[in-house]
Design a protein around this nucleic acid. Structure first.
Lengths: 180, 180
DNA sequence: TACAAGTTTCAGAAGCTTTTGGAAACATCG
DNA sequence: CGATGTTTCCAAAAGCTTCTGAAACTTGTA
């Protein structure tokens, strides 16, 4: 027999998994995260295997990845040798963790690459003439714009993380009042 | 012979492609976008094929996808039957487009699912007792928190999109002064 | 030390996504 | 209309990612 609760949870887990895959997170990893997030008690590897119908290896790999990200923590119970796992339940904390991870993996490498690309053409800019020069100038300028934008977004994100959920709420009501 | 400019551009294109794949955008699509973004003139399908070494079908498919997203536009030149393509070069505009697309595809479905999941267990909450009730309550509350958070982020994003790059810059300097 | 319970690793299998290349559809011009 | 050049579609192939299951490993216990 399947209860309404179980059906509802399965639906949520599936959706979270789908969303994960369009975010570069493996479906199973996202599903495990969803499962732990909505569970009212820590779960062990066998629980995960049984509830999501995945192999032991798979469950183990993805649990470790979640620990790596800092989205899930291990829980030891006295007198039980099994590892149990629980998800971070503070959504704001979760958000911070995800942002930091993604920034480290995605924004920083692109900023480094842009720097490197700019350096590579910097010398050529002197000395070049005509069409070649125009091409270099356009390229250089586009790189600058992109870099500037990413820097700004980084700063904005830092601001948001610093002021926290309360700060964002206050900022939003202020913004709302400003335009009536 | 490969110029420094070409090497630098190839590097940027590769990196943008890599980044794309961890964003749910196919590598080729991201590479084509990068190519058009840094080019100082519109390019045709053959240019793309030649420069990125991809097949005609592939180039065509991905160009269409970019048109769909609104990141690239078609350019017709008088006296030339070929289609030419140019990327949106205003980074802020680009950002808006990407945010809107991703929100439509990712945030909205999850909000709908959460609503649906909440409705499914709402009735069960009356009538349930003991452990079953505790499980439902926890689940319901976690869904609420997540929903609230996503709503707030949506509002913040709307705010950012509304005030534009100037507004964000002003907000950031204000924030910076506040804390000395 | 041997054993039991639990966890991690990894090579191969399965499944999914992307790419190719050719055929069909489409558009334009004389 | 037919010739010509361009774009789109699609089925098969390639490539990549994820998953499985069994073996290796770790840790605690007697």
């Amino acid at each position: 027999m399947t209860t309404t609760l179980e059906q509802s949870q399965a639906l949520f887990i599936r959706r979270w998994g789908t969303m994960g895959s369009s975010w570069g997170i493996s479906r199973t990893m996202a599903e495990i995260h969803a499962l732990l997030y909505i569970s009212d008690r820590p779960l062990c590897t066998d629980d995960v295997m049984q509830m999501l119908q995945v192999s032991r290896g798979n469950a183990s790999m993805n649990l470790r990845q979640l620990l790596n990200w800092g989205l899930v923590r291990r829980i030891h119970t006295l007198g039980d040798r099994k590892d149990y796992f629980a998800a971070e339940t503070d959504v704001w904390q979760m958000f911070q963790t995800i942002i930091r991870e993604r920034r480290r993996r995605e924004v920083e490498p692109i900023l480094e690459t842009i720097d490197r690309c700019r350096q590579m053409v910097a010398q050529d800019l002197r000395g070049a003439r005509g069409a070649e020069r125009a091409a270099i100038e356009t390229y250089h300028q586009r790189l600058n714009e992109l870099h500037g934008f990413l820097d700004m977004m980084n700063a904005l994100l830092n601001g948001v993380l610093d002021v926290g959920s309360g700060g964002v709420k206050r900022a939003l009501t202020a913004l709302h009042k400003l335009r009536g």
